[in-house]
Amino acid sequence: MAVASAVENGHSEHLVKEGSFSGLTKVVAMDCEMVGVGDSGKDSELARVSIVNLTGHCVYDKFVKPIEEVTDYRTHVSGIRPADLEAGEEFSLVQKEVYDILKGRILVGHAVHHDLKVLFLDHPRSKIRDTAYYQPFKKMCNGKTPSLKKLAECLLGVKVQQGEHSSVQDAQAAMRLYTMYRSDWEAAVHKLAQHRRNQLKKPK
Rank of each mutant, 00 (worst) to 15 (best):
K144H: 12
T145W: 10
A132R: 13
C154H: 11
G143Q: 10
Q135K: 10
N142F: 12
L156V: 07
L155Y: 05
C141A: 13
C141F: 15
D130C: 08
C154M: 12
G157H: 00
K149R: 15
G157C: 00
C141G: 00
A132H: 06
T131F: 10
D130R: 14
T145E: 07
L155G: 05
G157N: 01
A152G: 06
P146Q: 09
Y134I: 03
T131A: 08
Q135Y: 13
F137S: 03
K139F: 12
Q135N: 11
L156H: 02
L151N: 09
L151R: 07
M140I: 07
A132T: 02
L151Y: 02
L156F: 09
I128L: 12
T145G: 06
M140C: 10
M140W: 04
L148F: 07
F137A: 01
C141S: 12
L151W: 00
I128Y: 03
E153G: 14
L156W: 06
G157L: 03
K150I: 12
A152I: 08
L151H: 05
Y134Q: 02
F137Y: 11
Y134M: 04
D130P: 00
P146E: 02
F137G: 09
F137Q: 09
G143D: 14
L155I: 01
F137W: 01
T145A: 00
G143I: 14
L155Q: 07
K150T: 13
L151A: 04
P146C: 11
S147P: 00
N142I: 02
C154R: 15
K150P: 02
K150E: 10
Y133V: 03
T145L: 03
L156I: 06
P136W: 02
G157K: 00
P136G: 02
G157Y: 03
C141Y: 15
Q135H: 12
T131C: 13
G157M: 02
K150Q: 13
F137D: 09
S147I: 10
T145I: 09
P146M: 01
K139T: 10
K144V: 08
A152F: 11
G143N: 05
P136I: 09
Y134T: 08
K149Y: 09
M140D: 12
C141Q: 14
A132V: 01
L148P: 03
M140N: 07
M140V: 09
